[in-house]
Amino acid sequence: MAAAAAAGAGPEMVRGQVFDVGPRYTNLSYIGEGAYGMVCSAYDNVNKVRVAIKKISPFEHQTYCQRTLREIKILLRFRHENIIGINDIIRAPTIEQMKDVYIVQDLMETDLYKLLKTQHLSNDHICYFLYQILRGLKYIHSANVLHRDLKPSNLLLNTTCDLKICDFGLARVADPDHDHTGFLTEYVATRWYRAPEIMLNSKGYTKSIDIWSVGCILAEMLSNRPIFPGKHYLDQLNHILGILGSPSQEDLNCIINLKARNYLLSLPHKNKVPWNRLFPNADSKALDLLDKMLTFNPHKRIEVEQALAHPYLEQYYDPSDEPIAEAPFKFDMELDDLPKEKLKELIFEETARFQPGYRS
C-alpha cells in the first residue's frame, strides 16, 4: 500500500510507478496490472468513496492506442447498470505532455475469474450472474457493438453480487458484411471463450460470437473449470467437437473457408456428449439454455433477447427493466489503419471533457 500523499506533496508512487492523480484522489492501494497499465484503488475526496484507477501508458504502440481509444469512446457513450462506466479521466493539459491516461471507475471487490478459483456457486448465484451478463449484453448488442472478449476476468463483482462487464478494448461495431482481413492475426481474445466460426472463417462476425462466450462462462460457473481449455488453435476446435459432436452437413455448409471445411470433413465422426453427463448436478433449465448458447452453427445460436426470456431466468426476466441503447454506435473511421500519432490526438480530444474549465 502506498503511503497517503500529504496535501501538495506531488504524485504518489505505487510499486515504483508514478500515479499522478492528486489532489482529488489519494490513499492509493495496488490492485493489479494488465498488459499496459496498473490498477489501484484510491480515495475520492470529492465523492467520499474509494474508486478504481487504471493507469494506461499506450502511446508507444499502435495496438494499445487503438484499444484505449475504443474503450474510452464506447464506455463514455454507454450507460447501463451492468456495464462499468467511466467516472473521470485524468491526463496532462497538453498533448505533448500526455504520456499516461488515468481512467477512474467504480471500485468492484472482485471478478468472476477470482471468485470461481475459490468458491463453488449455488444455482441461485449462477442464475443471477447469468441474468446480469445477458442484461448488459442486450444493451451492448442493441448499440450494434460486439464485445468480443467476454470471459470471467472481464466480469466485475461486488459483495452485493452486482455484476458489471468491463474491458471493451477489443470491441467492434457489428459488421457481418465487412471482410476484416487479418482478423485472426489481430484477434487476441482469450482462445477458450472463442466461437468456432472465428477459427473457421475470417469473413465478418456477428453478435452470436458473444453468446458463445457467455455459454462458455455459464459452463464454467457450473463446474469451476473452463469447458474448452484448448492449448492452441486446432486443439481448441477438437475440444469443442469432442463435446458438441461432429457438425451436420448443414452446419458445414455455413463454413465459407474450404480449407477449414475440408479439415472438419477429414475428422472421424464424434457423438455429442449429453450435458447432464458433463454437469450431473446442474439445473435442467440451465443445461437447456447452455445447449442453445453453445450451438456450433452461429445462425442457430440463441440471441440475447431470447436467452433473457428463457425459463431458467424467469424469476428475473423483465423486458421493461432491460434497457437498450438510445442509438446504434458508430465509429467515424476504422481505427485499425491509423498511425499511433493520430490515435493519440483522438484520445486527447475524447478525454477533453474531463479537463478543468472544459467548454463543449
Score class of each variant (00 low, 15 high):
residue 2 A to D: 11
residue 3 A to E: 06
residue 5 A to T: 13
residue 6 A to N: 01
residue 7 A to T: 11
residue 8 G to A: 11
residue 9 A to M: 02
residue 11 P to T: 14
residue 12 E to Y: 02
residue 13 M to K: 15
residue 14 V to S: 03
residue 15 R to Q: 09
residue 15 R to M: 15
residue 21 V to M: 12
residue 21 V to G: 06
residue 26 T to H: 05
residue 26 T to L: 04
residue 27 N to L: 06
residue 27 N to E: 03
residue 28 L to M: 14
residue 29 S to D: 00
residue 30 Y to G: 01
residue 34 G to T: 01
residue 37 G to H: 10
residue 38 M to L: 15
residue 39 V to G: 00
residue 42 A to T: 14
residue 43 Y to H: 11
residue 46 V to R: 08
residue 48 K to L: 14
residue 49 V to K: 14
residue 54 K to L: 01
residue 55 K to C: 14
residue 55 K to M: 08
residue 56 I to N: 15
residue 59 F to D: 09
residue 60 E to W: 13
residue 62 Q to I: 11
residue 62 Q to R: 14
residue 65 C to Q: 10
residue 65 C to L: 14
residue 68 T to W: 10
residue 70 R to A: 04
residue 70 R to E: 09
residue 71 E to T: 09
residue 72 I to F: 12
residue 73 K to D: 12
residue 74 I to K: 09
residue 76 L to E: 03
residue 76 L to W: 00
residue 77 R to C: 04
residue 80 H to A: 05
residue 81 E to Y: 01
residue 86 I to P: 09
residue 87 N to L: 09
residue 88 D to E: 14
residue 90 I to A: 09
residue 90 I to T: 02
residue 93 P to Q: 15
residue 95 I to M: 07
residue 96 E to D: 13
residue 99 K to C: 04
residue 99 K to Y: 04
residue 101 V to C: 11
residue 106 D to H: 05
residue 108 M to T: 07
residue 109 E to D: 15
residue 110 T to V: 07
residue 114 K to C: 11
residue 114 K to Y: 11
residue 115 L to I: 00
residue 117 K to L: 09
residue 118 T to Y: 04
residue 122 S to V: 01
residue 123 N to T: 00
residue 124 D to T: 06
residue 125 H to V: 00
residue 125 H to R: 03
residue 127 C to P: 08
residue 127 C to M: 12
residue 128 Y to A: 01
residue 128 Y to T: 06
residue 130 L to T: 06
residue 131 Y to E: 02
residue 131 Y to A: 02
residue 133 I to W: 03
residue 134 L to N: 03
residue 136 G to M: 03
residue 137 L to F: 00
residue 139 Y to M: 10
residue 139 Y to P: 12
residue 140 I to L: 11
residue 143 A to Q: 13
residue 144 N to A: 05
residue 145 V to S: 05
residue 146 L to V: 06
residue 146 L to F: 05
residue 146 L to H: 06
residue 148 R to Q: 13
residue 149 D to N: 11
residue 156 L to G: 15
residue 157 L to W: 08
residue 160 T to S: 15
residue 162 D to S: 00
residue 163 L to P: 09
residue 166 C to K: 00
residue 168 F to G: 02
residue 171 A to Q: 00
residue 171 A to T: 13
residue 173 V to E: 15
residue 174 A to N: 07
residue 176 P to C: 11
residue 176 P to V: 13
residue 177 D to K: 07
residue 177 D to N: 11
residue 177 D to A: 14
residue 178 H to D: 08
residue 178 H to M: 09
residue 180 H to N: 15
residue 181 T to G: 06
residue 183 F to H: 01
residue 188 V to L: 09
residue 189 A to M: 02
residue 193 Y to G: 10
residue 194 R to G: 08
residue 197 E to N: 07
residue 198 I to M: 11
residue 200 L to R: 11
residue 201 N to L: 06
residue 205 Y to A: 06
residue 206 T to R: 06
residue 207 K to Y: 06
residue 207 K to V: 05
residue 208 S to C: 09
residue 212 W to Q: 04
residue 212 W to T: 01
residue 213 S to L: 09
residue 214 V to Q: 09
residue 216 C to P: 09
residue 217 I to Y: 10
residue 218 L to C: 07
residue 220 E to N: 02
residue 220 E to S: 03
residue 222 L to Q: 14
residue 225 R to H: 11
residue 225 R to I: 06
residue 225 R to F: 07
residue 225 R to Y: 02
residue 226 P to N: 04
residue 226 P to F: 02
residue 226 P to A: 07
residue 228 F to L: 14
residue 232 H to Y: 09
residue 233 Y to G: 02
residue 234 L to E: 04
residue 236 Q to H: 13
residue 239 H to Q: 15
residue 240 I to M: 07
residue 247 P to N: 02
residue 248 S to H: 10
residue 250 E to Y: 07
residue 251 D to W: 00
residue 253 N to Q: 07
residue 254 C to H: 08
residue 254 C to V: 05
residue 257 N to A: 10
residue 257 N to I: 15
residue 258 L to D: 04
residue 258 L to A: 04
residue 258 L to E: 01
residue 260 A to W: 02
residue 260 A to H: 01
residue 260 A to M: 00
residue 261 R to V: 11
residue 262 N to M: 02
residue 264 L to M: 15
residue 264 L to R: 02
residue 267 L to Q: 14
residue 268 P to S: 13
residue 270 K to Q: 04
residue 271 N to R: 08
residue 274 P to N: 03
residue 278 L to E: 11
residue 279 F to L: 15
residue 281 N to E: 08
residue 282 A to I: 03
residue 285 K to S: 05
residue 287 L to R: 06
residue 288 D to V: 13
residue 289 L to Y: 06
residue 293 M to V: 00
residue 293 M to N: 02
residue 294 L to D: 03
residue 294 L to A: 07
residue 294 L to V: 06
residue 295 T to Y: 02
residue 295 T to M: 04
residue 297 N to A: 04
residue 297 N to L: 04
residue 298 P to N: 05
residue 300 K to I: 12
residue 301 R to N: 02
residue 303 E to I: 04
residue 306 Q to A: 04
residue 307 A to K: 00
residue 308 L to R: 03
residue 309 A to P: 08
residue 309 A to T: 15
residue 309 A to S: 14
residue 311 P to C: 01
residue 312 Y to H: 00
residue 314 E to M: 02
residue 315 Q to R: 10
residue 316 Y to P: 01
residue 317 Y to A: 08
residue 318 D to P: 03
residue 321 D to H: 04
residue 321 D to V: 14
residue 322 E to N: 00
residue 323 P to N: 04
residue 326 E to I: 02
residue 327 A to I: 02
residue 328 P to N: 02
residue 332 D to G: 10
residue 332 D to R: 06
residue 333 M to N: 04
residue 334 E to S: 04
residue 340 K to R: 14
residue 341 E to C: 05
residue 342 K to W: 00
residue 342 K to Y: 10
residue 342 K to R: 06
residue 344 K to A: 05
residue 346 L to C: 08
residue 351 T to S: 15
residue 351 T to Y: 01
residue 352 A to S: 14
residue 354 F to K: 07
residue 354 F to I: 14
residue 354 F to A: 04
residue 357 G to H: 04
residue 359 R to Q: 09
residue 360 S to R: 10
